[in-house]
């Protein structure tokens, strides 16, 4: 069942585009940023780019990877509910899927596994890749690998976890809406550097428990708001959101008519 879901996901043009966005987008932006940063540093402009910035180069490209992760999480569900062309009967793939695999919890579990593995593998490649590209292109201004591992090692892991959980949230939300429009719009609009959630942290302290705000603490050391959770606690809060959303999605998916 897991293999079947893999083939379905990777057979979608949208998934391939999402993977391309993640890989080319993240690495491309990393290269552009590093080149311009290096040029500025060569000119002696150290005010804008401190030691801190060069260490973090590549890590701050998380929004690009997040777009890919969100698209993957959305299309694995929404593609099931898109109508075929009328010439082909106008049916939806979900009918075929449920006929061949009537055990719905198992089906959803297979989809969740596929999203986790795909996004995890993608993130495990793009996050370190972006950092390596950045450090290489920074040249003399880069940092030796050992130093980097000491300073940002856990945040690389945090980024991967963040991306996987984001994809799973997108997947769970799409199970509820069945159409990709709403989850895609809300989640991508909220990946921006100044997100709605970030603005909410200025209104209420409770916003620190929002999934993306909490999850971002796994990645960022300079989150532009005060009194945030620690990285571990933030990761756990985001994971808790994901689990709750997935449980709700599983209940709805099992009980609602397809």
């Amino acid at each position: 069942m897991v293999i079947a879901e893999f083939r379905k996901l990777l057979g979608l043009p949208a998934s391939l585009v999402a993977i391309a966005i993640s890989v080319l987008g993240t690495l491309g932006f990393a290269a552009l940023t590093a080149i311009s940063m290096r040029a500025a540093l060569d000119r002696g402009d150290t005010a804008r780019f401190t030691d801190h910035t060069t260490t973090e180069a590549g890590l701050d490209l998380l929004p690009v990877g997040a777009v890919g992760a969100i698209v993957l999480g959305v299309v694995i569900i929404s593609s099931e509910y898109t109508s075929n062309r009328d010439d082909a009967g106008g049916g939806r793939q979900i009918s075929t899927t449920l006929t061949s695999t009537p055990r719905r919890p198992a089906l959803l579990a297979a989809k969740v596994t596929v999203v986790t593995v795909t996004t995890g593998a993608l993130a495990a490649f793009t996050v370190p890749g972006a950092i390596m590209v950045s450090q290489t292109l920074l040249g003399d201004h880069g940092h030796p690998p050992g130093d980097l591992v000491d300073r940002i090692g856990w945040r690389v892991v945090g980024s991967v976890v963040y991306l996987v959980l984001t994809a799973l949230l997108a997947c769970a939300a799409t199970v509820l809406t069945r159409s990709g429009i709403i989850p895609l719009t809300l989640l991508i609009a909220n990946t921006s550097l100044v997100s709605v959630s970030l603005l909410l942290t200025r209104v209420t302290g409770l916003a620190r428990y929002l999934p993306d705000v909490a999850g971002a603490q796994m990645v960022s050391t300079r989150y532009p708001a005060e009194d945030m959770l620690g990285p571990i606690a933030g990761g756990l809060v985001m994971a808790a959101w994901t689990v709750v959303m997935l449980v709700v999605a599983a209940v709805v998916f099992t009980r609602r008519d397809a």
Binding site: I21, P63, V67, V75, L184, I188, A189
Partner: peptide
Amino acid sequence: LAALVVMLGLVFV
């Protein structure tokens, strides 16, 4: 979906 990703990706990312 494709158009949304293009537009939102441009504006927000």
